[in-house]
Design a binder for these strands. Sequence first.
DNA 1: TGATGTGTTCTGCT
DNA 2: AAGCAGAACACATC
Length: 284
Amino acid sequence: MPELPEVETVVRGLRATIVGRTFARVHTSAPTASIVVSPSLPKGGLEKNLPDRAVLGVDRRGKNILIRLSGDLTLWVHLKMTGRFLYVDISQPLDKHDLAVFDFRPDEHTGSLHLRFNDYRRFGRLRLFPNHELMWQPGLVDLGPEPLEIAVDDFVALCRKRDRMIKAALLDQRFLAGLGNIYADEALHASRIHPKRLTQSLSRRKLIDLHAHIQRLLKHAIRLMGTSVRTYSAVNGSPGAFQKKLLVYGHEGHPCGRCGTKIVREMIGSRSAHYCPRCQKPGR
DNA sequence: TGATGTGTTCTGCT
DNA sequence: AAGCAGAACACATC
């Protein structure tokens, strides 16, 4: 389940490997839903549209990866739960879940390495759009602010604007772009906030606290190259190390690091929530 | 073999 | 209008 730190790790890996390179042969073996090419572009999918385009840069918006290409195009990637990029030697046998293979024009450094997009569940999406169409796409246009960029006063104002369960708000990409179940649960635990608390019932002081913990956790996780849960891995295949730092996510039944009470897992807002029933009281 | 779990986004109901 | 529950997605695992 790649969230912001995992996606940021992938983005940095892509920057180091493919920026400045030019696509050569591209091969896809995905069903149509996994790969979308704007109807305004020439027919023939990525195979037809990517070769001879240069990679100008790689940006991240929330959990979305934006690979900027020459000719005013962007390859927009969402990894969803199990999508991943692998930068491997071309001699490595293809996996049946390698949905796209990207060859680049050879350069002096990179020998016989190429890029693959692998997704055994096929929830991930590769989408190619001209830049002027990209910015209108749902899923991109409606994203909330970046959690690492939002100022604390703006975060407080955001929470005051509507009244809903804080856990649901943190998971809503239109509220804040980039948190998922792992970092939402960790941030609420660090701030001692019950996941069901309504946003407007939280004191300014609590919200300032939450804002600080969100940023601290995300930065720490980025430094450790993310959390490895199941299939996530960096472009070079190395797993993230933040997993060892998790205090509540996946710790159901284990003692809370702060008070020793057993961490519980409960469905809240139709998502599993992990929290400490003692540190995170519903009342305050 | 078939039920279940998984996170995100979309749909439809209240 | 807005928030919530449930569905869909596609596959591995049990």
